[in-house]
Simulated scan of single mutants.
Amino acid sequence: MTASQAGRRAPRSAFVPSPVFVGILALTLVSGWMTWTTFGNVKVDVFLLVICGWLLSLCLHEYAHAIVAYFSGDHEVADRGYLRLNPLKYTHPLLSIVLPIVAVVLGGIGLPGGAVWVNHEHIRSKARQSLISLAGPLTNVVFALALAVPFLVGLGPQVEDGTLTGSAEHIEFWAALALLAVLQITASVLNLVPVPGLDGGNILQPWLSPPYQRAYNLFAPYGFILLFVLLWQSEINRFFFTFVYWIAEAIGVEPGLSALGFELMRFWSNN
């Protein structure tokens, strides 16, 4: 691609949300209604709401990277379809979609995943390169805060010291919402850890000296695997969730409610 091609503006159609994203959004809304009304098997409803809501946040996370990259000079992201919020266009569907869903189902962890590819040759500013990497985690932070609003304003159930003290009406919906909020917190924290290859590391990478950048690039392909393995270590996992639940409580989300959401989501379990 020539410099003139990279510098051209994308057509409006490049910004139109894809049918795949619209479908995920529709499924999220429908499963939310099903959970609110306890339609059919409410545990299946919770599962669909959490998974669809998580997929929605994954799309927005990667879109944030792409749109900031576009306005920072890399217009190739439009040609790759990244501006249409289509997760099927990601460079690593297994890491970007399948593995994060598995992590949610098995461990209630919002794992980050490799997805959109940005051509940094078109990004001349170190600050803009860092901002591109920061845009994704900031989306998770905003998502977490938005999900916490109903709890902060008192719309959700009242919980004190892990015990439900108010009405249990629509408890399944609120538990799913609390779990989604906690997933966004886990994603925010993990994405900001300065591990090579992840957003936190990529924020710092432009500012490293050439020798350190070479070392960074050497370890970057293995950063995600290393993080995944570490999180399954009991002591690290316990410390991580203690920190996550501390943040959740600070923004009004009761950890016990999210734990209920996790139990309900695993509809195949006997719990």
Rank of each mutant, 00 (worst) to 15 (best):
V102D: 06
R8C: 08
V182D: 02
R266M: 03
A14Q: 04
C59F: 00
S234M: 11
L94K: 11
A168N: 13
R266Q: 14
L56V: 00
P210R: 07
V42H: 10
W33R: 10
L29A: 14
L25G: 03
Y70K: 00
P211I: 09
I251W: 09
G114C: 08
A69S: 09
I236K: 04
G113K: 01
L25C: 09
N191T: 04
G223A: 10
P194M: 03
L134N: 01
Y82F: 13
F71I: 06
N119G: 06
V50H: 05
V193H: 00
A181F: 08
F39K: 06
Y212N: 12
G53M: 02
H92V: 07
P150F: 06
I97N: 07
F47N: 07
N191Q: 08
S13M: 11
N191A: 01
P196E: 08
N217T: 11
P87S: 01
G166N: 09
I185Q: 07
E235D: 14
R80P: 00
L27G: 12
A259S: 13
I251L: 10
I67M: 04
L260M: 15
V118D: 01
G223S: 06
A176I: 08
V182C: 03
N202D: 14
W268N: 08
P150E: 11
G261H: 09
Y90H: 15
V77M: 01
L88N: 06
P93N: 07
V253K: 02
W33I: 12
W54C: 11
I67W: 05
P211V: 03
M34I: 06
Y82E: 01
S234K: 14
V195P: 05
Y212F: 15
S188R: 00
P112F: 02
N237L: 03
I101R: 04
H65V: 08
L56D: 00
Y216G: 10
I236T: 13
S72M: 02
A26P: 01
V98W: 12
W232F: 15
V16D: 03
L88D: 03
F267L: 04
S125P: 06
R124N: 14
A14W: 01
V159Y: 10
R12F: 15
V44R: 07
T35I: 07
